[in-house]
Amino acid sequence: MSVDELREEALRLNPAARARLARELLASLDALSEAEIEKLWIDEAIRRDEELDSGAARAYPADEVLARARARRK
């Protein structure tokens, strides 16, 4: 089963079951070693860089992002 298929199945669960699954998945990350966590961050950085290169994502200046975030908090 692919990650996409698993996600689709998980989203069919009722809210309580999804919440329990989410808690268990997040708790499982606490058991990762520093090396595993570093690898995950590197993989994520590579994925994001590829999205930027392909045009699937767009970069925004930090001050613009922070200004929008502050405006949403009000």
Rank of each mutant, 00 (worst) to 15 (best):
L11H: 09
D63K: 11
A35V: 02
R72D: 13
E8H: 07
K39F: 02
D53I: 00
K39G: 02
P61M: 08
A16F: 11
L13F: 15
L13T: 07
R12D: 14
E44T: 02
D49K: 08
A31M: 03
L66W: 08
E5F: 08
R58G: 03
R68N: 12
S2G: 14
A19W: 08
E64P: 08
S33Y: 01
L26K: 03
K74F: 11
L25R: 02
L66G: 05
E5Q: 13
P61L: 11
V3A: 15
E50M: 06
V65N: 08
A16S: 12
R7M: 15
V65A: 14
L40H: 00
M1D: 14
A67P: 09
L11R: 12
R58E: 13
E50Y: 04
K39Q: 08
L21M: 09
D43M: 02
A71G: 10
R7C: 10
A27F: 03
E38G: 02
R20K: 08
A16H: 12
L29R: 04
L40W: 04
L21P: 00
A67M: 09
E38I: 01
R47I: 02
A69F: 12
A35G: 04
A27Y: 02
L13P: 10
D53C: 02
S54H: 00
A56Y: 06
R48P: 00
E64A: 15
D30G: 07
R68Q: 13
R7P: 05
L32T: 03
K74P: 08
P15M: 04
A59E: 14
A56P: 05
L26A: 10
A10G: 05
L11C: 07
L66E: 15
L13M: 15
A57I: 03
L25V: 10
R12W: 08
R47E: 05
R12N: 11
E8C: 06
E9P: 02
L25K: 01
A56R: 13
D63I: 11
A10L: 15
A27V: 00
E36C: 02
E9A: 14
L29A: 06
E44I: 01
R7F: 11
E34V: 00
L66D: 12
E36L: 01
N14H: 12
E44A: 03
E5P: 06
E9T: 12
I37A: 09
R48S: 01
L6A: 14
K39P: 01
R58M: 09
D63N: 14
K74L: 11
A67R: 13
A16Q: 15
N14T: 07
E36P: 03
E50A: 05
L52Q: 00
E5M: 11
S28D: 10
E8K: 10
D4E: 15
E5H: 09
A71P: 09
A62G: 09
R72Y: 10
A19D: 14
S28P: 01
W41Q: 10
L11E: 15
A57P: 04
R12S: 13
M1P: 10
K74Q: 12
A62S: 11
A27N: 04
L6H: 08
R12F: 06
R7W: 11
L6N: 09
E8P: 03
A10I: 13
A19C: 05
L21W: 04
E36S: 04
V65E: 10
R23P: 01
W41G: 00
L21A: 08
L52R: 03
E64Y: 15
